[in-house]
Design a protein around this nucleic acid. Structure first.
Length: 194
DNA sequence: CCAGACGTTGTT
DNA sequence: GTCTGG
DNA sequence: CCAGACGTTGTT
DNA sequence: GTCTGG
């Protein structure tokens, strides 16, 4: 799935979105994140159906059930601007974080959002991992190619970008585990043999 | 019909 | 164990 | 997603 | 708001 990601390439964001951003090596749920709707929009990474009496604070939504679940019926669509994400490989007694990326290219995650209590909040759409990524984790974010951006935003379910095949990954320090840590060490490759 | 849930992840 | 905060 | 808190009283 | 369970 995707519960932590990065946005490091401020130069690319400036070129593409005409926006100066604070880079982050460790974007966590409940933070304000950069998305694209009809224009660049900052919103809370935390999604709630607009009828929810108590907040659900969802951070992911399964692509498989996007058009089925009542909680997503009223969702509007966005793209979430990123350039990498983290997954944790769970083994018997340890959790090893891995960083997934396409060098420092920008990635667009498929997202949905609502306005809840007067604030926009979003979730990242997930799908079954492609084969080469599934060794670490069986879910991954839906990545939208630039050519498909308008299709996604206008209601088309483009869940199978070829970009998924170009993703690389490597293990990183558990420094990234704490959302309080936000520096380049979060994405520094470590040896697998610890 | 009304009441009550509505989601994801992983883990058991 | 479970919820909240980041 | 993971980390870290999780409670009450009264007093300062 | 809308679906499922009783």
């Amino acid at each position: 799935m995707c519960g932590r990601y990065t946005l490091r390439n401020s130069k690319a964001v400036k070129e593409k979105h005409l926006l100066n951003i604070d880079v982050s090596y460790n974007i966590a749920p409940s933070q304000q994140v950069l998305t694209q709707t009809s224009s660049p929009t900052f919103m809370n990474w935390s999604y709630n159906p607009n009828w929810a009496k108590t907040p659900m604070n969802l951070i992911n939504a399964r692509s498989e059930t996007l058009n089925v679940k009542p909680s997503f019926k009223m969702a509007k669509r966005c793209l979430i601007v990123a350039d990498g994400w983290f997954e944790w490989l769970r083994t018997n007694h340890s959790k090893q974080p891995y960083f997934f990326h396409m060098n420092d290219d920008l990635l667009s995650f498929a997202g949905i959002y609502t306005e809840y209590n007067g604030e926009k909040g979003c979730a990242i759409i997930t799908k079954e991992s492609t084969k080469h990524l599934s060794e670490v984790h069986h879910r991954m974010p839906v990545i939208i190619a630039d050519d498909d951006a308008d299709s996604w935003l206008s209601g088309e379910d483009v869940f199978d970008s070829k970009l998924s095949e170009n993703i690389d990954y490597y293990p990183v320090s558990t420094i990234v585990n704490s959302p309080r840590n936000n520096n380049i060490d979060c994405i520094k490759q470590i040896s697998t043999a610890i």
